[in-house]
């Protein structure tokens, strides 16, 4: 990724240089040149102005106002639709089980009707896939905006360290939810691991 600060010639080094120059001139007050001090302060003002402009172009408020609400709404809908679909499929399965136990065998009409309901319920997968794609789109946009702001602030404001996130400990550290298939261990691996304790 290009460093926007360097590209515009307002990088961290230049900020440090200007501040050092201003401090030096102020400490040697009797030799201070008003024009020189004004020029340094004007350069600083330009840097701050440009940084504010670039942050504003990144529209950080969109993250809170638009992208996060969209992503959470979509995720809520995914949870809701998958729950409804699963419930509908299970309703049909229970009816089919009862039908299978009936004297004289199951009614072809009932079986056909319930199987159709299962097919219909399975269509949630299509919608869920589309919603997940939208959530991924929102996350990518948020990532781009945050990266841009970190670039602008991190490279222009000397000494601005980003604090590291606190890591969970104890039982809380073990609640991570489903793993990606390439990171999860299989049931066979779990069985082997448990066997090692015996």
């Amino acid at each position: 990724m290009n460093d926007p600060a360097s590209a515009n010639g307002f990088g961290r080094d230049k900020v440090v240089k200007i501040i050092s120059s201003v401090l030096s001139k102020v400490s040697e007050a009797e030799e201070i040149s008003r024009e020189s001090l004004y020029k340094d302060l004007k350069d600083l003002q330009d840097i701050i102005h440009d940084a504010r402009k670039e942050i504003s172009f990144a529209r950080p408020s969109d993250i809170q106002d638009k992208h996060i609400p969209t992503a959470t709404d979509e995720l809520d809908l995914i949870v809701k639709s998958t729950e409804e679909a699963t419930s509908s499929i299970m309703d049909s399965c229970e009816i089919l089980e009862q039908e299978a136990d009936k004297e004289g065998g199951p009614s072809a009409f009932v079986v056909s009707e319930e199987v159709t309901k299962i097919y219909e319920a399975c269509s949630f997968q299509d919608l869920t896939g589309q919603r997940v794609t939208k959530v991924i789109g929102s996350l990518v946009t948020i990532e781009e905006k945050v990266s841009k702001m970190i670039d602008i602030l991190g490279s222009r404001l000397p000494g601005m360290d980003v604090p590291e996130e606190e890591e969970a400990t104890g039982d809380a550290a073990l609640m991570n939810g489903p793993q990606a298939p390439d990171k999860a261990i299989s049931q066979d691996d779990i069985d082997k691991l448990l066997a090692e304790f015996d």
Binding site: L174, M175, G177, I185, D189, L193
Partner: peptide, 13 residues
């Protein structure tokens, strides 16, 4: 569970 990390299995055991 969906928790399928080695450390989870060990902690549970």
């Amino acid at each position: 569970t969906a928790e399928s990390k080695t450390e989870n299995v060990i902690a549970a055991k």
